[in-house]
């Protein structure tokens, strides 16, 4: 699987993403600086995490309106696989590739810790390797991860199996107590209508080695490898 990672000033999880992609796909991903608008032909485009443009105005707002994102949009509109993690998720929602918005965490604190996730959809291009063990611990690191969407939008996500991941406890209960940031319906990651775009707040690229405390983040990349095979 060929992949590209888009780089904006202020991102800080890009190297982790590049390392994870290379390790798991066996191909060195392209690192594309946002000013170089030409996107190579790849199977997967990733917008990684961090604080593009210092989170000025709103998290992801400025990167979402850059020429590089117009290229990402073209790739996604043509059915190309597109993954946004953390700030990347915020950028994809600001760009209109995914519905809703990511607001300040319910308790206003920056959260950097391990939570539990449950893969709710285990058939998508991004999540098909989670069927056997859908509940797993995963790191989060964000200030604006409180996903909100209007009631019609939420129903659309629920009815069409577009909620990829939800926050839960170690036993897989998606209770309010297990919701770290106030996201509606414990949503941690969503798919677009076509299923080729995933946005998520947690960091799978930081969960690929035993030393990370788990390797379940690998399954996203392995799902993608399987999907394009």
């Amino acid at each position: 699987m060929k992949s590209a990672v888009i780089l904006f000033p202020g991102l800080n999880r890009d190297r982790d993403m590049l390392a994870a992609l290379e390790k798991i796909t066996g191909h060195k991903p392209h690192a594309i600086w946002h000013g170089d608008a030409e996107l190579p032909k790849v199977d997967l485009v990733v917008v990684p995490g961090g604080f593009s443009y210092g989170d000025y105005l709103r998290a992801g707002a400025i990167a979402a309106r850059s020429p590089a994102l117009a290229e990402v949009k073209k790739h996604a509109d043509a059915g190309g696989l597109t993954l946004g993690v953390c700030n990347g998720f915020q950028i994809l929602t600001e760009a209109g590739l995914l519905p809703g918005a990511l607001m300040r965490n319910r308790d206003l604190k920056f959260l950097c810790k391990t939570i539990h996730l449950k893969a709710e959809n285990t058939t998508s291009a991004f999540t098909n390797q989670y069927a056997e063990a859908p509940v797993f611990p995963c790191p989060i690191a964000h200030h604006d991860g409180n996903y909100q969407v209007d009631p019609d939008g939420l129903k659309e996500l629920q009815d069409n199996d577009r909620i990829a991941f939800r926050y839960c406890d170690a036993d897989g209960n998606t209770s309010q107590a297990a919701n770290p940031n106030g996201s509606i319906d414990n949503i941690a990651g969503i798919l677009n209508k076509r299923g080729n775009v995933l946005g998520m707040m947690p960091h799978p690229e930081n969960l690929i080695e035993k030393a990370h405390g788990g390797i379940q983040g690998r399954f996203i990349f392995e799902s993608l490898v399987k999907a394009v095979a």
């Binding site: 105005l57 400025i62 600001e94 918005a101």
Partner: peptide
């Protein structure tokens, strides 16, 4: 519409 407001919210 384009930048100053996120009209979703």
């Amino acid at each position: 519409e384009k930048l100053l407001a996120n009209t979703v919210i």
